[in-house]
Design a protein around this nucleic acid. Structure first.
Lengths: 166, 166
DNA sequence: TGCTACATAGTAATCATTCCTAAACAGGAA
DNA sequence: TTCCTGTTTAGGAATGATTACTATGTAGCA
């Protein structure tokens, strides 16, 4: 996207939000990213400019921006929250290896019929398609694990078994 | 579904899993539920029968069953993991009020075209549609908040602002 | 310029989940 | 049937993301 700080100040004003340097920087970092960063990612990105910045503030800012509708939380798992300032309708492709998220804007996905068999009084407000799979790099490393000479399945390391999320 | 403990023992054997009473009970509780319970829910459900059961065991069991492909994790947010033993292809409707999840089996959703604009070497293995909205009960309570005489927006309580997940 | 409510930062608390360890047990071998 | 071995279980401790609390700072309005 690439909004200037001035654009952002204006946007905040339009939404009735106070504009502070920290808040603007956090939002700018998010708007200018397509990587769906975590709170920690944003913190790391903005920290050099605002060394006193608290991770707490990042969380608070994301909450406020979320309530204002400027930011969405992206669900790819229960582990940690990732954020997105892309407000145009879109969907996601998630690599199950590196957990990278790629935006998908495919108009064919924008008009799915509401599902059948729901309780009558259920009110659908939005939907999203999450595609899962493996990016090129992760397919490579998968293959090398599958054919590794040891044949040792990585499951042995206690708990960290990864399975296909649904 | 309603599998007997014997069916389950057989299923475990087929998958090369040891069958223990705890494991079978946890799996049975999950298979017989459509509520997509959390680990804690399952723990609460099985605990009366096995008072010594540890929540730890529930997590370990879910991990093992997941690796065996008998169980899937359902993502509706980053907060806590919910589980599903329904292996037939299906999608979900999530109430943003009570966080209830309803299974949707609508064959029209089972053959979406792969999205355009992906890197060539990305390998899509599955996808899922998540519909969001509000169930009848939650629509009612929403309405009563919106028209409440105080007009107080619930945002005031510090951090717990809930916004539409994407 | 001064006031006031909201924002920030620091620290502490919370809570789901994972890790570690010793004891118990399932399932195959003798 | 009994024994052995590796897996499973339970308990307690640790981790890590997120939230809560609180004092101080500051944006934006009068």
């Amino acid at each position: 996207m690439n909004l200037s700080l001035n654009d952002i100040r204006q946007k905040f004003r339009d939404c009735g939000l106070k504009s502070t340097p920290q808040r603007a920087s956090i939002y700018q970092a998010l708007v200018n990213s397509t990587a769906h960063p975590t709170a920690e990612d944003l913190f790391a990105q903005v920290s050099p400019t605002y060394p006193m910045l608290s991770l707490n503030t990042v969380y608070y800012t994301l909450t406020v921006l979320g309530a204002a509708g400027l930011v969405h939380e992206v669900n790819i798992g229960h582990d940690r929250a990732r954020y997105d300032a892309n407000l145009s309708p879109h969907h996601h492709v998630i690599c199950q290896g590196c957990q990278d998220i790629i935006d998908v804007m495919d108009s064919r996905l924008d008009s799915l019929a509401p599902p059948t068999g729901l309780p009558k009084d259920f009110d659908i407000t939005s939907y999203q398609v999450a595609f899962r799979g493996y990016c090129g790099a992760c397919r490579q490393s998968q293959k090398s694990i599958a054919t590794s000479p040891s044949g040792q399945h990585p499951v042995s390391s206690y708990r960290r078994i990864v399975w296909a999320r649904v």
